[in-house]
């Protein structure tokens, strides 16, 4: 599939930034149609997108967490209370014996990411 510009694709797919703007293992936040998203470029060049909101504090900070892996699964740790989440499916792997804030699920929403023509594209509708 070839995507040339955000306007030419289904409205849920949005160009966020140039791939080169992402530093390895340093997350950034993006604001996509009013939704805050955390983007990570990992050691292997892959890019992952999850919700920026930390379920356990309610703050929009996941982009500032430390990336790593647990048993081969790429992860990000919340910078507030250090819960660890899978970047593959968003599941919370380590809760640190805490509960999410009222009304929040413990897991993160993951958004499909594609890279095309040096641009990072997120599919908002694909979030789960």
């Amino acid at each position: 599939m070839t995507v040339t510009a955000a306007s030419s694709v289904a409205s849920s797919r949005v160009v966020v930034c140039d791939y080169d703007r992402l530093s390895p293992e340093l997350g950034v936040a993006a604001l996509v149609e009013g939704v805050q998203i955390a983007l990570f470029r990992l050691w292997d060049g892959s890019v992952h997108a999850v919700q920026n909101r930390c379920p356990f504090s309610g703050a929009q900070v996941m982009s500032r967490g430390i990336t790593g892996d647990r048993g081969g699964v790429p992860t990000v740790a919340s910078p507030i209370y250090k819960q660890v989440f899978s970047l593959l499916d968003g599941s919370c792997l380590v809760t640190m014996d805490k509960e999410p804030v009222a009304g929040a699920a413990a897991d993160l929403v993951v958004y499909p990411v594609s890279i095309d023509n040096g641009q990072v594209i997120i599919d908002l509708a694909g979030g789960e």
């Binding site: 990992l42 967490g65 430390i66 790593g68 892996d69 081969g72 790429p74 992860t75 740790a77 660890v84």
Partner: peptide, 8 residues
Amino acid sequence: GHGCDICK
């Protein structure tokens, strides 16, 4: 592996 929020 690739590290984590403890060792990094």
